[in-house]
């Protein structure tokens, strides 16, 4: 009973400690993280950005890549957290904008020296959506005009050859 109580107390303490650290952490940009990697190494950071590319599941975890407008940084999260992501950024859609709280690694020992973040918490700031690319009439008109020019040139070629 006493053992269980000690375990529970330690767990609560660790949880509180992490929660306080997360609360104290300010959101940092990718440029700041990369430029001051040694300073942030091993620290809990808040990083936000758009999920781009694929959510790559690896066992009970997944890789997501978060793009903040300057760079994209890889975030290693549990699959349960990654499952909250509905849209990923590509030509056809804008990805979910999320905020990650996690430990920043300048050269992650677990992941072959990658600069990454091991996410512990994930919050969706805004959901992504399908992007509609309306058919560009100007481009279509250009295609038709240029086709006309090619046709005239082809006729001229035939005359020149004769």
């Amino acid at each position: 009973m006493k053992k269980h109580f000690i375990k529970l107390a330690i767990s609560c303490g660790l949880f509180l400690f992490t929660a306080v650290q997360i609360a104290a952490a300010a959101t940092v940009s990718s440029s700041e993280l990369i430029a001051n990697a040694s300073q942030y190494n091993g620290q809990i950071v808040l990083y936000s950005g758009e999920v781009v590319g694929d959510v790559m599941a690896r066992g009970d975890h997944a890789w997501i890549n978060l793009y903040d407008g300057k760079n994209a940084i890889g975030v290693w999260v549990s699959l349960a957290l990654a499952n909250n992501i509905r849209h990923t950024g590509s030509y056809r859609s804008s990805g979910d904008k999320i905020e990650i709280a996690g430990i920043f690694n300048r050269a992650c020992v677990e992941h072959g020296g990658d600069l990454d973040i091991h996410g512990q918490g994930l919050r969706i700031i805004s959901e992504g959506r399908q992007l509609s690319h309306l058919f560009d009439i100007n481009k279509r008109n250009s295609v038709v005009i240029l086709l006309g020019v090619i046709f005239i040139l082809w006729i001229l070629t035939l005359f020149l050859r004769r």
């Binding site: 030509y91 058919f135 560009d136 481009k139 250009s142 086709l147 020019v149």
Partner: peptide, 20 residues
């Protein structure tokens, strides 16, 4: 991807005009 396709049709047409 229709708009990107148009970009390349324009590209191919300009190339053909120059080639001709």
């Amino acid at each position: 991807e229709f708009n990107p396709t148009l970009d390349f049709i324009i590209g191919i047409e300009i190339s053909l005009i120059l080639g001709l």
